[in-house]
Every structure is written in C-alpha cells, then in structure tokens.
Write a protein that binds this DNA or RNA. Structure first.
Length: 842
RNA sequence: GCCGGUGUGUCGGAAUUGGCAGACGAGACAGACUCAAAAUCUGUUAUCCGCAAGGGUGUGUGGGUUCGAGUCCCACCACCGGCACCA
C-alpha cells in the first residue's frame, strides 16, 4: 500500500495539538532550550518556499532536544505592522488590520500544514494592543532614561513611501523596501541613542556565538575608528576642530575642508567675500540625493572660503579653508584637515584646485598618487616626528597636542542615532504629547496601551505629516504635566520596534502586568539558538541587541545579550528561465544555430531580457514565473517530503536553487521507509552486519544536526536505507532506531509507522533520542590504502587494531607493492593509523 | 577602494580539517517487471589511452611547502554578499 500523506499528515497534526506535546512548561525540572526563528511578516503573497527552511531547521533541533529531555520553547508570532499591508489597504480601500488578520490566518494554515512543532499557545502579534502596550512602555523607559529625543534633523526621505527612513534602511542611496529615490529633508524626528551603546555592541560580540560574517558586518556598520581631534586657529577667531585618524600627518595638512552644512559658514557669513558662491554651493549640495552623491564620488567639487583662513598648529603656516560635499556633516566634527600627500580624496581635491602636496611619510611618490600605507613609511618634513614610524608618530603627536591643549585622542563611530518616527498610519502610536507650556511629555504608563485609532483615510501625505494628524479627536489631549491642552505625537514607530523585543514576550505572552515576569525572563533567557536572515544583520539584529542591552541596564532583562547563538540560512532561489543554461535542449540548439555559439546566444538573451539573464539562478518572482508555492508541494508530495527536501537541498547557510526533481528524491526515501514495514522481523536486535552502520548513522545524524549540516545527516539516513534494502527484511529494533532518527525531519510518516508497527508506547516524538556506542561505530577490519610515493597502488584489508610495523610489513608483502619497490631504496615509511601506508622510494 | 565569502562531474552538493576526490540526491544510459507507459527494482555513469588487465590526467589559474594538497602559503582571475567621499 502506498503511503498516503494526505490522510496521515493532518491526522498527526491534530493528535499533537490535542496532546499538547509541544507546549513549553513554565516550571520544569528539565533543562530549558529556547529556539527562535524570526517571526514572519504576514504578507499577502502567503508563505514562500523560503520560509520553511529556517523553520524546519530549528524544528529538527527543537524536536531532537525534546527527545533528549529538554523543556523546549519554540514559539511563533507575527510581525504585523508594516507598509505593504498599509499600501494594499490604501489601494483597495480596506482597513490594514482586516487584511493583516486575513493574511495571518492564511500563514497559520500554511505553517500548521508543515508540522512545525511551534507552541501555538504562546503566539504573539505586534498589532495587538496587549502586545504594543509593552512596545510603547519600552519607548517610555527609553525616553525617561534620556535615550529617546526629538530633534530637527536632516533625514532620509523615501519619495515613494512618503516617509523617513533610518540609515539602516537606505541601501545604495535608495529605499531598502521599495527601491525608490531617497532625498534629504529637514524634519523633526524622534531619535533613539543607539550610538550610546556603540562600544558595547562591538565588545559584547566576543561573548556570543554568531557566524564571523555577522560579527564582521555589524562591526563594520558600527565603524569604530581611532584618531584625534585637533583645534586649528582661524583668522575669524574661532577654533575649527577637526577629526583625523592620521594625526601623524599633521605637518602635511596644507588646507582644510568643512562640510556645506557646517554651522561656521553662517557665523562667518559677514567675513566671506564670496558668500554668494558659497551659498550657491550649499544649495547644490542640498539638492543632491544620496544616489547622486555616490555617483559623483570621484569628481571633487568645492568652493574656497575667501576672507577666512586657518593656521596649521604645528607648522604655523596659514592655510585656506574650503567647503566641499566630500566632507560629511554627520561624521566626526564635519571638518577635516586635508593632507593630500597621504589621503587619496584630499589628493584628488588638491590636484583639481592646485594646492600644495607635502610629503610627510616617505615611501611613495606623492606627486603621482597619495601614499596611504601606514606600515612601512618613515616620517619626514615633520619637526618633532622626523624619523619615527607612523605608529610611533601617531602616539607622539597626540601626546604633544594634549600637552599644548590643542587636541586629544578620540574615538569615532560611523553608527548614527536611530531615526525612530514614521509618517504613516499602520504602526505603534508614539506615547508622547506636546504641550505649548511644558514641551514634550510622556503619557502616564497607566494610559497604555495608547490605541491606534480607526481612521477613514490613512494615505500618506506629501507634506510629510502623518495621516493621524487629521484625527483631531484623537490628537487633542491634555498635558499630563500641567493639565492644559496638548497634542499627541502623530508619527508612528517603525516596523523594527515590535520585533526588537518580541522574543521576551514569548517567555510569558499573556502577562498583563509586565512585558514578562521576572521568573519567566530568568528561566528562559538567553535564547539558546536564533536563526534568521543575513539581511537583518544591521537592522533587526542590531536594533534588538540595543534594546535588550537597555532593558538589561534598567533591570528588566537578565542578560546583556539576547541571543546566545545566531545562525543564518541561505535563500531558496529559482531557475532563471531566460538563462541559456536553463533552456530546453532543443531551444539551446536552435539558438546556437541562429547565433553561432553558446556565448553569442547568451548575449542575445541578455539583449532581449536584460542583464539579469546572465544569472542562471535568481530570486523567485512572479514576472519570471518561477515561484513555487509550498501548498502545492505539501499537497502533491506531503509536508515530510517538503521538510526533507528543504533540509537536503544544500549547505544550509548558502543559497540553493529549488529543484522539483530533487523533491522526488526525498519522497523516494519516504516511500522506501514506508515499505520497510512489509518485511518486519520480530526481533529487537540490530543485526550484526548492520550494527556498525546503525551506530555510525546515529552518531552522524546527532552531530550533523548540531552544526547545521542537515544535508549530510539526511544523506547518512539515505545511505543507511541503501544498506537496509540490500538485506532481507528489517528487525523491529532496527526500524525503531531508523524511525526515531528520521522523526525530527519527517515527523508524520514516522509517527504513523511508530503506531502502526507498535514500536513503542506513546508518540514517536516523545521517545528518547537514540544513543550510540563509540566503540561500535568502528569496524573490526578496515581497508587501508598503500601508496608508493604518494600514489595509490593497492588496498589491504587489515584488523582495525593493527600496529604501524604490522601495517608496513603487510604493505611490503603485497605482491604489487613488492614489485614496485623491488630494487629501490626506501627513504621513508609513513603510516596514518586506520588510513594508509605511504612508502617513499628513491 | 574596504570588509566577508565562494569557485569540485551534466546538475544540487560530499570529503572526519593535510591522508582513497566525487558520499548522498537528481539527471542520463542499460536491464527486469508491463500489451504499453508511469511507478518500482537492479546495474552503469569525472575524464583520456587501452579489447582487457592496467595506466595517465583531474577540485578557477600560475607558483610554493609537504612523503602526500580540494584542504596550508604566495600571486592572480571570476563570481556572490555587505559597506563605501566615514577623514
């Protein structure tokens, strides 16, 4: 009888739910294990085949942990505020909450059909007032601790979303979400002082188990650099302070540059002979979008300030000051000393404006190009620094600046404070009111949650005002301080707010008095294993670490870091139907005939479909018609097959293309497993000829599931299946072990076999995980390879405990080897235990 | 430009970290079953020379270290991800 997944899978899903086997216990003698996946945004498209990959991976781990005797928390929830729902709602004149609830229902159905062992009793949803009450509460704590402030800022503005963006949300000068142009606008915004945590966000990476690429990317984003601030005297009387990472090159500073937004320009306006030209340049710079600015990178522009000059504090020479947009107002002090000899940007600028280039570090030809090497050069033309190395000179000059009181060592970060308000409807209201008399005031905690009001129109406005601003009933409030009239903040929080702490709510999801009880937080923290996408490394992952550190500082969270271990999965991609390699053979032939060669044919495809045609594997998209719907796979092959395939498709950490042929291979494993029942032998033993294979497989599967090598774990199960098929029949004991090993990957069919064959009491997923005996993973006889001068010349079957001398003697005695080495001098004999003998002759 | 990563059969990918390259799966080919097809089962499947036994070559390229290199070192090429006028 064929395995019928359509009947079997829902049956067991229901059985698990009724038995409540995946509920985490609040109080338990067992050790705890908290596994977390990034909770999904419930989009209108429904589940993508990419979603189940991380869910299944941690499900395998969670199920195995339960079998190993852990109290496992593996929760799920919804990151449900967000722009796509809002935009869809606007377009179709419906309320975003309604369609979001529908999407959640659809996601729930799809995820449940996969048999993931989530604890659904702990489901959380960021749009529930009971949930966002605590998101708002955290905001109030941040405010009370001086970490949230409102400030007139030059911010990123997405022209399509009509909304400000955090720096982390601007990618290559365009909006991370919609790809539209990002321009700069001055707006008053709520900001969170993530910069206050910059150093700790770097340092504590040493205490957590994250992939190196994640740590590197976060460090890179935070962008710590060390250098010095130096004061330059100016003819206007003001000190102009600059930041440099190369204080050693101070003697080579031949001019200065300040950013177009630098406040001194206004201050000096009266003294500037060419103020019109300066103003014109400022206006130009302001008009440029981020995208244009990066495009123009190489071409340096600027205007010299006529009427004000500075003095190099070590050479005493008078030097000019320029404004240029290659100096950013938001980094350092917004002003630099320019050392064209040793900085390529300054060099470009100096060449263009014919400024002097003075070599202060020997080792290059500074008239040809800037010499930026810090490791080899020796200081010259540098007074007290002459003869020193760059490293020594940095130290010496910083001491000197401090002695003279004109500078000091300084650390800078690229990280900026987090722009936290959005001019949109569908987000958590910011619990603040503005009173003419008292300024910004937090609303009392007793008034939380501050509910998002129902509105008729929530279209974003071009003026940059939130749609909530039209809701006068809601906007008008009283000041918690003086009782007078006040207005509510009408901007809402960004999507990243609710996801910055959701993992704490899972620990105690229904608590009305706190975001979670102290006992729950103490028991479950930290998260033992968090898996998520690389795309969140400098967004969600960084933001949530920041919030968690804050909650730790105010005594709410018990650990300084939220996640003990972080892993990342690769995306599931699709085949590009426009790439030559993916075309049907006949079509390939036809194109080669038409265009002359494969290369020409591919070029023609690029001509027709664009640059993207060059990539054989691409993201799935509707327009390419290569989207796979998980529902179809579950329907046709079953959830177990889907799960196995997602784990088997390739290296978990790398992107992998979906292949329906590959899915069939996984279904075959299930069918072969299913048919084992028909030859069941009533014995609890592992037969001797299979004992080693079983112990090895238990070891392999146990280990590989800990290190994300799900693909090789499944390969080991397939290999064991091949060995089983080669034997007649299968014992009850063998089927029991195989069933338990396969259970975390394919929970439904294994549950069915467990019950049908009466392999034990209770559910398969509640059995103890199989153990192996290290001694039994080794064969009694082994095959060793005999090499002569590193080339394989023979193979020998020998006892596993053979000594070096015996092995070499056996090798030499072998006919073929004897012939090879006859008459030659043996210069070396190498024996690698259990592996090989290598005889080196001359 | 800077940081991180990858490169292995027709394809997805293995290789206990320096020790038999190509596990496992897909595809293809052949055979069995079938009136036939599908499904299933059994074999073959890196490549070159050879009837065969056997031998040569082979992990992006070029060098090196080593008895031995996919793995380590140096240089380079290609691709992917992140950052990017951050002083």
């Amino acid at each position: 009888m064929k395995y019928d997944h359509r009947a079997t899978e829902p049956k067991w899903q229901k059985a698990w739910e009724e038995a409540g086997v995946f509920h985490a216990e609040d109080k338990s003698e067992k050790p705890k294990f908290y596994a977390l996946i990034e909770f999904p945004y419930p989009s209108g498209q429904g589940l993508h085949v990419g979603h189940p990959r991380p869910y299944t991976a941690l499900d395998v781990v969670a199920r195995k942990r339960r079998m190993q005797g852990y109290n496992v928390l593996y929760p799920i929830g919804w990151d449900a505020f967000g722009l796509p729902a809002e935009n869809y709602a606007i377009k179709n004149h419906v309320h975003p909450e309604g369609i979001t609830r529908q999407n959640i229902a659809n996601f729930t159905r799809q995820i449940k059909a996969l048999g993931i062992s989530f604890d659904w009793s702990r489901e959380v949803c960021t749009i529930d007032p009971d949930y966002y009450k605590w998101t708002q509460w955290i905001f109030l704590q941040l405010y009370k601790h001086g970490l949230a402030y409102k400030k007139e800022m030059n911010v990123n503005w997405c022209t399509s979303c009509k909304c400000v963006l955090a720096n982390e949300e601007v990618v290559n000068g365009v909006c991370e979400r919609c790809g539209s142009e990002v321009v700069h606008k001055d707006k008053s915004q709520w900001m969170l002082k993530i910069t206050e945590y910059a150093q700790r966000l770097i340092d504590d990476l040493d205490t957590v188990d994250y992939p190196d690429r994640v740590k590197a990317q976060q460090k890179n984003w935070i962008g710590r650099s060390t250098g010095a601030e130096v004061d330059f005297a100016t003819s206007a009387g003001d000190q102009l302070t600059i930041y440099t990472t190369r204080p050693d090159t101070l003697y080579g500073a031949t001019y200065m540059v300040i950013s177009p937004e630098h406040p001194y320009i206004e201050k000096w306006a009266d003294q500037l002979a060419n103020i019109e030209a300066v103003r014109e340049y400022q206006a130009q710079a302001a008009r440029k979008s981020d995208f244009e600015r990066t495009e123009m990178q190489k071409d340096k522009t600027g205007v010299r300030l006529e009427g004000v000059t500075a003095v190099n504090p070590v050479t005493g020479k008078e030097i000019p000051i320029f404004i240029s947009d290659y100096v950013l107002v938001s980094y350092g002090t917004g002003a630099i000393m320019a050392v064209p000899a040793h900085d390529s940007r300054d060099w470009d600028f100096a060449k263009k404006f014919q400024l002097p280039i003075i070599e202060v570090v020997q080792g290059g030809n500074v008239q040809e190009a800037a010499f930026t090497d810090c490791d080899t050069g020796v200081m010259v033309n540098s007074g007290i620094l002459d003869g020193l190395s760059v490293e020594e000179a940095k130290k010496r000059i910083t001491e000197y600046l401090e002695e003279q009181g004109i500078g000091h060592a300084k650390v800078n970060y690229k990280l900026r404070d987090w722009v936290f308000s959005r001019q949109r409807y569908w987000g958590e209201p910011i619990p603040m009111v503005y009173c003419e008399k008292c300024g910004w005031q937090p609303i009392p905690e007793s008034e939380l949650p501050l509910r998002l009001p129902q509105v008729d129109s929530y279209e974003p406005t071009d003026t940059g005002e939130s749609p909530l601003a039209h809701m006068t009933d809601w906007v008008n409030a009283s000041c918690p301080c003086c009782g007078g009239p006040a207005k509510r903040e009408t901007d809402t929080m960004p999507q990243w707010a609710g996801s910055s702490w959701y993992f704490l709510r899972y620990m105690d999801p229904h608590n009305p008095n706190a975001l979670a009880s102290k006992e729950a937080l103490d028991y479950w923290s930290p998260i033992d294993w968090y898996n998520g996408g690389m795309e969140h490394t400098t967004l969600h992952l960084l933001y949530s670490r920041f919030w968690h550190k804050f909650l730790y500082d105010i005594g709410v969270a018990p650990t300084a870091e939220p996640y003990g271990k972080r892993t990342s999965h690769g995306m599931i991609l699709g085949f590009n139907p426009h790439n030559f390699q993916n075309l049907p053979e006949e079509e390939q032939k036809r194109l080669v005939e038409e265009f002359g060669s494969e290369k020409k044919a591919q070029e023609a495809l690029v001509e027709k479909y664009g640059e993207m045609a060059n990539h054989p594997i691409v993201k799935m998209s509707k327009s390419l018609n290569n989207v796979i719907n998980p529902d179809d796979i579950v329907e046709e092959y079953g959830a177990d097959t889907m799960r196995l395939y997602e784990m088997f498709v390739g290296d978990f950490e790398k992107a992998a293309p979906w292949s329906t042929a590959g899915v069939k291979g996984c279904r075959r494993l299930i069918d072969r497993y299913w048919s084992l029942r028909e030859e069941l032998v009533d014995s609890d033993e592992l037969r001797p000829q299979l004992e080693t294979a079983f112990h090895r497989t238990i070891k392999k599967v146990s280990e590989d599931t800990e290190t994300l090598k799900f693909n090789t774990a499944i390969a080991a199960l397939m290999a064991l299946m091949n060995e089983l098929t080669a034997q007649n029949g299968i014992t009850r004991g063998e089927l029991r072990v195989f069933t338990l090993l396969l259970n975390p990957f394919a929970p439904h069919v294994t549950e069915e076999v467990w019950a049908e064959c009466g392999l034990g009491e209770g559910l398969a997923c509640q059995q103890p995980w199989p153990r192996y005996d290290e001694a039994k993973t080794k064969e009694s006889t082994i095959e060793i390879v005999v090499q002569v001068k590193g080339k394989v010349r023979a193979r020998l079957n020998v006892p596993a405990d053979i000594t070096k001398e015996e092995a070499i003697a056996a090798a030499k005695a072998e006919d073929k080897i004897a012939g090879e080495i006859a008459g030659k001098t043996l210069v070396k004999e190498i024996y690698v235990p259990g592996k090989l003998v290598n005889l080196v002759t001359k």
